[in-house]
Design a protein around this nucleic acid. Structure first.
Lengths: 345, 345
DNA sequence: ATAATAATTGACAGCGCTGGCAGAGTTGTA
DNA sequence: TACAACTCTGCCAGCGCTGTCAATTATTAT
């Protein structure tokens, strides 16, 4: 026996297929008793609307696409970043009768704009969630915008761009908070490791660091800033420079967790006790943060919640709801663990 | 101007829509000159077939669903496992005009069978890739089988089950190889850390360890086996027991990388040099394996390739191709890094 | 050359659902 | 009581494509 169609349900409930459609889609103006009769028939026949037919007739795909830079392409550990985004976006989709399509890609790819354009034309999703760092790349944003498909940018760094709705994080404020926290522990020489210059979020963190110093009455010194590139290795390199000085810093705040892990590793090699002689803080709260010893004090991004909000906005928009505009800012939260402590006397 | 339909293409090429359909779907029996004319029209109109219409008419969804246990549910680091599976499955889909739907879930969930059944009835994918450990759970396999949707089990441990096609790994052989490798370095006291008893793959590794010992002429001793549960903590606990003995092992082979990382951490604390005084080997080659110091010798699973094969088989099957049956076994590969070396004199 | 066969093309009926609109039934109001 | 203003329901025309099958044309065998 083949699967039940809307016609079977209508027949069994003694109504027209249109009425069944109304019940299935929660449209108004159906008498409660009728509704109940239809629901009963649906249950009895185990009826499930056919997605293709529904999509064809309604001109909606019920598909949201999550586009992100593929971490496995570089064997970097931030797979967790992706998983958490997926989790949030999926939550929104599952709650709203949509499906999520994922599209990992490589931000360095010269032809990425064209690739995404083709993808979008093929799939025709109702909306697109564009994750950082792609969300901060003007050519990508432009390519997607050109397709006319609604999209939401999710980025850790805020960026003034009134044209598109975006979901972002208070990166700068949070870095300032972390800096103030370190200062409140008595640290005076707080170093900062900047990250990859192409990565916007990381710039905001540096600004936040400067804010925090100022707010704490600690003067900024360029000597205490080393430039990394987000990798563990670069964190090690920076740490070696900083920790081999006569007056070394008592705290190091890295723009991401990988570099912070590198700092911890170097401190260990040099016999510098963390946190007794050196406090180390990171940013991102990747899985590694809890795997290093001592566990890393860091900043946790509400990635899942951000992606969920983004997907939700798109779904509502596709239902003919609200316009997509403005910006939603999520608050990151400090995760104080074992790698930070009072400044040494 | 709205998007071009098959009708527009047909008109422009001066053929019937059916012929356009033939060209688009690579059906045989279309004259080359006609084909070229149609292709030209397609290019000029930037025509893309409508997925919904096509799916509706062809009774295929062009959707493959990847079902897996959600790592982010436990904050465990093996997000990389999922990412690699996704990558492989996506490759197959992208190459074959299909899309991938992901469905993370929790294997402990009592109602998981029902959840999956609902999902499948709603989405009606052309096929399902079922990842370990779900692929080894009889009730899940049964629930999915009951829907009638073709599925492929992907598991690291082999399992005799003639009924369904499955893609698996030579876990046991590979563990034996690793054990022989350690023995060949002169190690006589090679300890093994078993993993979570519910995790099938891990059992095979223990068997492989025993095989390897035997093949190397090293006698097995229950004293050298400690029971962990796959976590870093349990690896630490096991290592503490093993390394505090009067005659401690000179090599420790852990059933997964997390536990191996725990061993390295303990060795470090106890001042035991790795690999000079102790060789450590793991299994899985998660990102952490390269982040610990020294980098971990381990076994790399061809996860992406396995998932790709699985998805490919499903796609071919959905095209009316081959039956799904039997088993494909993939070979894992040893990754020899810095954590293993000659046995101390 | 002619019949038989194969290759190529087209006509058309759906696939299962939603949107628009009209008709029927109800309630409210003067 | 009559009429307007709702609320509820059904009819039907697609949505854009594929499957089936018949028609037409090219090729090969006799």
């Amino acid at each position: 026996m083949s699967r039940a169609t809307i016609f079977d349900v209508a027949t069994r409930a003694g109504v027209s297929i249109k009425t069944v459609s109304r019940v299935v889609n929660n449209e108004p103006n159906v008498r409660e008793t009728t509704k109940e009769r239809v629901r009963k028939a649906i249950r009895e026949l185990n009826y499930r609307p056919d997605r293709s037919a529904r999509n064809l007739a309604s001109h909606r795909s019920h598909l949201i696409t999550l586009i992100y830079d593929d971490p496995s392409a570089y064997e970097i550990p931030s797979a967790g970043y992706v998983i958490r985004m997926q989790q949030g976006a999926l939550r929104a989709c599952r709650d709203n009768d949509c499906e999520l399509l994922i599209h990992p890609c490589r931000y360095q790819d010269k032809a990425l704009g064209a690739e995404l354009k083709t993808l979008i034309e093929k799939v025709r999703p109702d909306g697109i969630v564009l994750a950082a760092p792609l969300s901060n790349m003007p050519n990508i944003v432009r390519a997607i915008g050109a397709t006319g498909t609604p999209f939401v940018r999710v980025s850790s760094g805020r960026k003034k761009n009134g044209k598109h709705y975006s979901v972002s994080m208070n990166d700068r404020e949070c870095s300032a908070e972390m800096t103030r926290y370190l200062a409140s522990l008595g640290h005076k020489r707080i170093a900062f490791l900047t990250g990859h210059p192409k990565h916007d979020a990381v710039k905001n963190r540096f600004l936040g660091y400067q804010d925090g110093l100022q707010e704490s009455g600690v003067s900024f010194s360029g000597d205490l800033v080393e430039a990394g590139d987000n990798s563990i290795r670069s964190g090690e390199a920076c740490a070696e420079k900083l920790l081999s000085r006569k007056r070394r810093p008592t705290a190091i705040f890295a723009a991401n967790d990988d570099m912070a892990a590198g700092v911890i590793r170097v401190a260990d090699r040099l016999g510098i006790k963390v946190p007794d002689e050196l406090s180390v803080a990171g940013c991102d709260d990747i899985a590694l943060a809890q795997q290093v010893y001592p566990a890393l004090t860091t900043i946790r991004q509400p990635l899942a919640a951000m992606a969920e909000r983004a997907a939700l906005a798109l779904i509502e928009h596709s239902r003919g709801g609200s316009d997509l505009g403005g910006e939603d800012v999520f608050a990151a939260s400090m995760q104080i663990r074992e790698s930070t402590g009072p400044a040494p006397a």
